[in-house]
Design a binder for these strands. Structure first.
Lengths: 224, 224
DNA sequence: ACATGTGAAGGCCTTCACAGCA
DNA sequence: TGCTGTGAAGGCCTTCACATGT
């Protein structure tokens, strides 16, 4: 009934957002044959401070050895478990434009527990009617395929005007987690988790910093 | 010499990250012919609370009218100015795989002050040798084109193993802001701003929440 | 009257300092 | 001795309550 206390304890949002990065860094170490890492080494590889890393890991449990470090393989397994990557996550992507096709083929979307289980578009013949091994289905098939393939995560890569109706269709079909790349704020029924990603925003933030540097007389001390 | 006090005052990171969203919402209102909005209306359209919006805007200055609201066009101009979008930002994208081509054609990357000024790949014939109007150039041309076209922002969409050397080349050519989509942590000289975006991370965070809901006996109160 | 703008309070997250353990 | 794990401190951000101005 009860898992480890540390597992059941709530993990902060900020920590969850960094765990995938730790996992990626650990995979790099494993591929290089490294068996053990210190928090300092792993933190550097993940782009954070070692205290940050240790505090984050402390939310999962005590998987390190004092005076020594962390065993690479073991820590990777524990983080995967915490993130829920030990189970399989079928994903559906709606909107087979440039971005949709790119995501369907993107390794970060097709590894680590995730696999593209269905693709949808108004025009199912777009781009040859398939991406890799997966056929593109018409929207009329959305409900049936999502149910039969037990898809719990949906990705929206349609133009903004279509995004809300796609969101509604996904929610009605039983999807509970939606990743929205369309530039629109979606409303979904309670119990459906929507997360928006705006690639343009990142550019804007960069431009803002760039402009700030320009407006300074001395472009010195821009570190961190 | 000195701009408005509010403009010169430092704007919090979190606020800067939300300004593009406000701008998008304002554009929607403008297209619908709306002349004036309250903080409540605009906040809803942007997916935040009205107090959040007002606090954010207070960092830029006082652009609203008490008892009335904000004039759509005027506020849009002020936010654009604060973000530095009133000037032109030439952008270079390196790595013309699926993601690179998608970004080159993505409207969020080609509007609001930004325009794709150069594309690069090891194999400049990939995808027909061009995306839209822009030719794909070989990496040997990177330094020359970045300098002659005064490109200050670079986007990396190569595989992870190539990312660091692309970053080095960009920095050497004088680029000061880099958006990195490759799953690797890059080191750049001081004065060069690197921002990493991992599309896979978003999926991981979603899966984590999904799993948390699954593990609860009562899937109630998942709101917010 | 009504909606903006803002000091103050509260909460979350990061960083520090050091206790704990091999 | 060396590195992990963690309570405490500090900082940033969000939210509240209300003062402000039309």
């Amino acid at each position: 009934m009860s898992a480890d206390a540390a597992t059941r304890r709530e993990i902060p949002d900020a920590t969850v957002a960094r765990l995938p990065e730790y996992l990626r860094a650990l995979t790099d170490f494993a591929e290089r044959g490294t068996k053990s890492v210190s928090s300092e080494e792993l933190a550097t590889a993940a782009g954070v401070r070692s205290t940050q890393l240790r505090k984050d890991l402390s939310h999962l449990g005590s998987y390190g050895v004092r005076g020594v470090g962390y065993e690479v393989d073991h820590l990777a397994v524990e983080i995967s478990r915490a993130l829920g990557l030990s189970q399989d996550w079928p994903v559906a992507i709606v909107g087979m434009g440039n971005l949709g096709r790119a995501l369907a083929a993107y390794s970060g979307f097709t590894s680590g527990g995730f696999h593209v289980a269905a693709l949808f578009d108004d025009d199912p013949t777009v781009g040859g009617g398939r991406v890799g091994d997966v056929l593109i289905s018409p929207m009329s098939e959305l409900r049936r395929l999502i149910r039969s393939r037990r898809i719990a995560i949906g990705v929206i890569t349609t133009p903004a005007p279509s995004a809300q109706q796609v969101c509604d269709a996904m929610a009605a079909a039983g999807i509970r987690s939606i990743l929205n790349f369309a530039p629109a704020v979606l409303t979904a029924p309670s119990g459906v988790n929507v997360r928006r990603v705006d690639l343009g925003t990142e550019l804007h933030v960069l431009a803002f910093r760039e402009m700030q540097v320009d407006s300074l007389d001395q472009p010195v001390g821009v570190a961190r």
